[in-house]
Design a protein around this nucleic acid. Structure first.
Lengths: 230, 230
DNA sequence: CAAAGCTGTCACACAACTGTAACACTCTGG
DNA sequence: CCAGAGTGTTACAGTTGTGTGACAGCTTTG
């Protein structure tokens, strides 16, 4: 449930599968891409917490992709671990130069992979990810896992909490029901889209009339968290 | 609804049909042409988001058409994927040289086709497709799906939103009712042309007197979005 | 093991949006 | 100045999209 999303980019399905098994055991959620283009799409689309990126890729090489990711505003702070087949110090240098956060040489043990990954995730955790978020008297405090509306503590369920957290960290932007299912429920769950509506309803109710205006319906598109009244 | 329009140019109806089936499954809208002339007409008329272009065509060859498209201002940035029957590196080189964005050798699987197509469309997407557009105090922000007139958020319906978005990305140009139906409603819908008038009316109303001058009537031709008063 | 809490679905109520037709108005050319 | 065509405007009925409450299955809590 607390599983971060890991994107695995490698052109060999066997290697991907190996990694997936190792990571899922450690409670990470895995998504896969076979080439740089697919990877880029998934990154934009799913916003993984970290990317495992093979050095050699057909078409656009891994290092090229890494460079591009670090250049783009929206993807710049997604940590990257490079996977390289040979021990080449050069590669290491260049990889780290362009912004990769760590690199692992194949072959590696699952244990090692998980360890490195954890380390990078911990280190790379954006400062203040655990800081409370406050909007117009509504506070969500990840540390204490508590939501308050004008000092009054709210009774809020797990799903509503995650939903609210997602919204408060992604304000002023519309998300479709499908995107919300991906982001809040986790990618590979089969749940009716209308379920989102119900949890939105529950969240609004929990927020009370003081703050339910923050969750806005965008007809035909989805929902939006915004401080500006619709 | 989010389906991009794909123009398929191939002289063999069977192949076209195969592609159409594959793409429609993936929620693309397909239009077809059997030769270069027909293709050119459709491109000008319907402005597809991407063109699948057979290498060999009766009359003007595919490569010739591609070259022409890349030379013309209004069609230069429509991505092209070349379809070629044989694996000839030469063709690949020449194809990419003249501006094709990718090429696929027959036979290909529907999966591959869709994947490539997605990739090209993504790559070709102009940077900042999600950036807000602002004209004289009127702002349309795709990310938040919000339209503001001098800071004031407007209440606008889905169709009016799409209509406005189309206009703001295609300013200073007249569009007939028929073209607007194609572009905003989607090609294969049967709707009365007068319906456009009604939605124009609704859009103008929503914009209010500050900004309704932007939507201009061109008698006998259609409508135009222009910052210069009629 | 019972009680309480959560989740996902459903069915129905309600609101917004859509396309059309009908009528009013405006412009154009003769 | 008078058709007639082209466009503006309104009302309305059908359709679609959302809100809402209830409920049964499950999990957690005590």
């Amino acid at each position: 449930m607390s599983g971060k999303t890991v994107l695995i980019v490698d052109d060999e399905p066997a290697i991907r599968e190996m990694i997936v098994v190792a990571l899922e055991m450690a409670d990470y959620e895995c998504i896969e891409a076979a080439d740089a283009l697919e990877a880029h799409a998934l990154i934009v689309d799913r916003q993984p917490d970290i990317v495992l990126l093979d050095w050699m890729l057909p078409g656009t090489s891994g290092i090229e992709l890494a460079r591009r990711l670090k250049k783009e505003e929206t993807t710049a702070n997604i940590p990257i671990i490079m996977l390289t087949a040979k021990v080449e110090e050069d590669n290491k240098i260049r990889g780290l130069e362009i912004g990769a956060d760590d690199y692992i040489t194949k072959p590696f043990s699952p244990r090692e992979l998980v360890a490195r990954l954890k380390a990078v995730l911990r280190r790379a955790t954006p400062p203040g990810i655990d800081d409370p978020i406050e909007v117009d008297g509504l506070t969500l405090d990840p540390a204490s896992h508590r939501v308050t509306s004008n000092e009054r503590s709210l009774n809020i369920g797990p799903t509503e909490y995650r939903l609210l957290q997602f919204f408060m960290t992604h304000q002023e932007r519309v998300y479709t029901r499908s995107q919300l299912l991906d982001q809040v429920w986790g990618g590979n769950v089969y749940v009716e889209e209308r379920t989102v509506d119900v949890h939105i309803r529950r969240l609004r109710k929990a927020l009370g009339e003081h703050h339910d205006y923050l969750i806005q319906t965008v007809r035909g598109a989805g929902y939006r968290f915004s401080t500006q009244p619709a």
